[in-house]
Design a binder for these strands. Sequence first.
DNA 1: GCCTGCATGTAACGTGTTACATGATTTA
DNA 2: TAAATCATGTAACACGTTACATGCAGGC
Lengths: 178, 178
Amino acid sequence: MELSATAKAILGILAMGPRSGYEIKQLVDRSTRFFWAASYGQIYPELKRLTEAGLVKGRDASTGGRQRTVHELTGAGEAALREWHGSPAGVYELRDEGLLKIFFAAALGEARTPELLRQRREHSDEVVTQLRRVEEALEGASDSTCTVLRFGIEMNEWIADWCERTAAELETKPKEKS
Amino acid sequence: MELSATAKAILGILAMGPRSGYEIKQLVDRSTRFFWAASYGQIYPELKRLTEAGLVKGRDASTGGRQRTVHELTGAGEAALREWHGSPAGVYELRDEGLLKIFFAAALGEARTPELLRQRREHSDEVVTQLRRVEEALEGASDSTCTVLRFGIEMNEWIADWCERTAAELETKPKEKS
DNA sequence: GCCTGCATGTAACGTGTTACATGATTTA
DNA sequence: TAAATCATGTAACACGTTACATGCAGGC
């Protein structure tokens, strides 16, 4: 059973507890978003497919006239999740426009690298701010989710620091060579 | 003029010098791949679109019976590139399956976080090895492309170190709370 | 003569975002 | 009563990879 990118996130989240599609999206946005995004347009159809495949089952939880379906893992769903979890390696993809701009700065004959490094730094600063907010909201969870959150915060702090350091270096000795 | 993801890479690379589609792909694979990938299936159609839009022009450079088209920037192409280069912010996307697995480790009731951190570490080790190889091949380029390469190497070294450190910590004091 | 590398291109498929449509409930 | 939030879902579009098809040139 090959799981799609979104299926991996959905099954994992449902392993933490039953949830509606809406709640899954909320959780993704407040936690995995920085390394694993998902949109409604993926979540709802995927939930349907997973239900048809018997990995997930839905339970009606409507309150009055407001429709609501809470999904939970089936035995097969948990098995599929464990199989994926134990499998080696996996996707790693990065798309970073800030780095691309720096990469081409020299070809454009512009000495804007320090400026671009500071822009990149600002982005990481913002991510740190957001992740800290999430950390406060999640306080005391003290498990593997926190480890990942800590990783995100510390990595972005490192990136911000690296960009600042490198920008400063380039400004001190603008052209050592070339 | 909104540029597609692949267009940004193509125009930037052509700013470093005229190249065939094949050579563009080679360069991407040996340099920007880790933060900005592109495949033939994107490059050739995009080259066609950019030519039709007047941002790029092709020159026949066939040798004997072997077909070859070398592309270069037009004035409009360089203008579009500079406009993008000067615009704020931009795409930042990460998809990291290793982190996702760690995120869900606790929910699966498994104490595999140290093992998963070491797997994640191995991946960064491999990236460092590859980037070092690229660095040697590019030796002495001494411009903004090297800055980005250095960033890739040092960031992945930091990640490897963080994973190792955190795995060791978790093994020393397995459960401080919970 | 065969394999590797240069060179171009497309078709099929899968993935993913955005915007829209709809409607109920809660809060200010 | 208006706005925000809960809640579900789809259609159109954009993006991107993989695999395939084709053929030339150079070295062994």
